[in-house]
Write a protein that binds this DNA or RNA. Structure first.
Lengths: 235, 235
DNA sequence: TATTCATGTTACCGATCGGTAACATTGCTT
DNA sequence: AAGCAATGTTACCGATCGGTAACATGAATA
């Protein structure tokens, strides 16, 4: 959640984008080409929000599988089946698409997290264990490409980039929730345990992309996390 | 080491690069422009290997700090202070530069690893501990950008890319050496301990780029690793 | 001194990048 | 039916991408 979300906002972002309108445009100022033919076949007219959804779906798939930086706008519009101008009427820029992408990924992440929690209400120890189990299962998916937030952080080295703030926000919230569970489990040093679990999670994300094959590592991860929790809670 | 290293090889890589020579070039075939002026001031003539070294240094710095994919050849030649053609006479392509980059990073990594080992000869437990301590210290450097191999893996999603094989090679060797140390430490389940340490290392690399601030996480990492080793070696 | 060959330099290529202007068409409202 | 705003389409922009041809210059060798 957090940072840049504007909650659906179909308002075309009016008022923004002054863009200085190129005041120095002496030149011809009109008549670029002739545009002309426009072959007569049926032209599908999508409603704006439909196009918006298809664009967001394409962005989600492409940014995740190929990298936000590596994917061009042309690839997005091609996959979404919409026109480039339809995209730029809905979204300010590629950076805006990146924001939306991260918001969606953040929501999906917490959806998964809460689903694991819901399997063992009132039992923090089992909730943590379930989280690691469910995580490892997802990581086994063939098209798994690791953590979208890590990937964005690495693709955008500038820590001042807005996307980086969303990454940091997601990770900080993850730490906070892990910490709350560690406390609820009765960990002697809850911060130490939380740091350990956070490192394991980040490590499993990274290892899924660097080790080949990564399966042996990822499959033992829930057990390693379980041992770590048990050790931290023992007297 | 491994994969694509050709050991200095100043041979201009003759015979390769057939490039089909554009057989369909009817056109004029000669006299592109006039090139002409070439202002007369002193023109420095670097020896090939000098330029090669400056290029590799520039590549190392730029690829690491900004990402191999994000850095253009123009940026490399500008930083190296050489001409673009001087680069392409020494290296086949940008991919070749990436290979060289990874080879150097691999050598540097094992240099650091061996340096940690050398501090406690014959004492695998202390060698492992020292490795984590030295690692954490390096990660505190202000321009730290995490693991160059993870970064490349994420920037190049195609697992068939040669660079990805070098990444996998580095990680597999790391696992093997950690495993040997785990065995020497007398770990009950040496593979499990190795997996745990590997996850912690990858996690610390990733967390250094995603958590903000990351210092609290990274500083406790040696202790977490130490606890993990102790637990694995206890009867 | 003359030849040779690697190096430095400029200009350019085709492709793609993110983004936009102008115009054609659609569909809803009135 | 008329008006109108939103959408679809084409063509284009300036910048940059990785990479190259042609030519000018340098320095060592012959």
């Amino acid at each position: 959640m957090a940072i840049g979300r504007k909650e659906k906002d179909t308002s075309k972002a009016a008022t923004v984008k002054p863009k200085v309108v190129k005041p120095k445009a002496g030149k011809v100022a009109a008549g670029r080409g002739v545009v002309v033919p426009q072959r007569a076949s049926v032209r599908k007219v999508t409603t704006g929000s439909d196009a918006q959804q298809q664009i967001l779906d394409a962005v989600d798939a492409l940014f995740y599988s190929e990298g936000a930086r590596a994917v061009g706008i042309d690839a997005v519009v091609k996959r979404a089946g919409v026109n480039k101008m339809s995209l730029y009427r809905q979204f300010e820029s590629k950076d805006a698409l990146l924001q939306e992408y991260l918001v969606r990924r953040d929501q999906r992440f917490w959806g998964n997290f809460d689903a694991s929690m819901a399997k063992h209400p009132g039992n923090p120890r089992m909730q943590l264990q379930q989280f690691f189990i469910d995580w490892a299962e997802r990581a086994g998916s063939p098209d798994y490409r690791g953590c979208p937030f890590i990937n964005v952080a690495i693709e955008f080295p500038d820590r001042a980039h807005p996307a980086r703030q969303m990454v940091a926000s997601n990770k900080r919230q993850l730490w906070d929730r892990l910490h709350a569970l560690a406390v609820a489990c009765g960990a002697k040093d809850s911060r130490l345990l939380t740091n350990g679990m956070a490192l394991l999670i980040e490590g499993a994300y990274a290892a899924s992309q660097t080790y080949n094959p990564a399966k042996p590592l990822l499959e033992t991860m829930p057990r390693i996390a379980g041992d770590m929790i048990d050790a931290a809670c023992r007297a």
